[in-house]
Structures are given as C-alpha cells and as structure tokens.
Computed example of a mutant assay.
Amino acid sequence: MKLFRMAAVLAVLAGPAYAQEAPHINLLQDGPGKSEDEKAADAERDKAYKETLKKIPDAKTSNDPWGGMRSDPPKQPAPKASAASTTKKTKTGAAAN
C-alpha cells in the first residue's frame, strides 16, 4: 500500500514537469495580411479615436477615500465665528467683588 501511495505522489509531482517538456504547437494559423486600404482605414480609425480621447475633460478626483461607503453626502464644516460676535460669558450665582 505504501508503494502505491509513493507511486501516486511521484506521478502527481511529475505531471507539471512533463507538461513543460511538451512541444509547443500553434493551433491558430496565421490569416492573410491586411490590404493597404484596410491598413489606411485602421490608421484613420485610430487617429479619430485618439482625437476623441483628447476632447474628454479630466475628472476631478475626490479626496474622500471613504466617500463610496457613506449613504448620505459628507457634512460641510461649520463656518468659523468672528472674534467680534463672540462674547465673554461670566459665571452666574457668584458674588462679584
């Protein structure tokens, strides 16, 4: 039984090594080349595609890495209060001398 197990392990390990030695066969035959008209049409199509890509404006990227995880939009920060609008509060109930 041990001999059978050893043979199975060697067969499994030898499989990938044998596959590397297999001859490389190209099953797809090279087709006929393109004519000059087809090459010119491809070049024109590529040129039009590249010009179209140049017309697309760059998208502004968001600085919020968790933006897609929120269900509600991010809250805007509260505006800062000016120094003139803040008043100093005093304690109530204390005797002032």
Rank of each mutant, 00 (worst) to 15 (best):
R45Y: 10
K2E: 09
K47R: 14
T52M: 10
M69L: 11
K50T: 02
A48C: 01
P57G: 14
A8M: 14
A7S: 11
P32A: 14
K80S: 12
S82T: 14
L28E: 11
Y49E: 13
T61V: 09
P73N: 01
K34R: 14
G15M: 12
K50R: 06
P77R: 10
T61N: 08
G31D: 15
R70K: 13
A41G: 01
A84C: 04
N26A: 13
A48Q: 12
A7D: 02
A11F: 13
R5S: 07
K47Q: 09
D72S: 06
K91N: 07
L28V: 09
P77D: 13
A43F: 11
E44V: 00
M6W: 03
R45E: 11
S82Y: 06
S62P: 06
F4Q: 07
S35W: 02
S82H: 15
A11M: 14
S82W: 07
D42G: 02
T86A: 02
D30S: 13
P73I: 00
S82Q: 05
R5K: 10
K88I: 11
V12P: 02
A41F: 02
I25N: 06
A94L: 15
D72H: 10
T90S: 14
G15D: 00
A59M: 12
K75L: 12
V12F: 04
A22N: 05
A43G: 03
P32Y: 05
L27I: 05
K2H: 08
P79Y: 01
L13V: 15
A17F: 07
A14M: 15
M6K: 05
K60L: 05
A43I: 05
G31C: 00
A59R: 08
R70D: 09
S71D: 14
Y49A: 13
R5W: 12
A8T: 05
E51K: 08
T61F: 10
T61A: 13
L27P: 11
E44F: 00
R70L: 03
K54S: 05
T90L: 09
V9Y: 09
Q76G: 03
D46N: 09
K54T: 04
K60S: 02
P16R: 03
K91F: 07
P16V: 00
M69H: 03
T61M: 08
A78Y: 03
Y49P: 00
D46L: 12
N63K: 06
D64Y: 15
A41T: 05
P23I: 00
D42L: 13
P65N: 11
A8W: 07
V9D: 04
S82E: 13
S82K: 13
D30Q: 09
R70A: 07
L3W: 04
P16D: 01
P65D: 04
K47V: 05
T87F: 10
A14T: 14
V9K: 05
A8R: 10
K80I: 10
S85W: 02
D58P: 04
A48M: 05
Q29R: 10
G15W: 02
L13C: 15
K75N: 05
Q29F: 02
K55I: 01
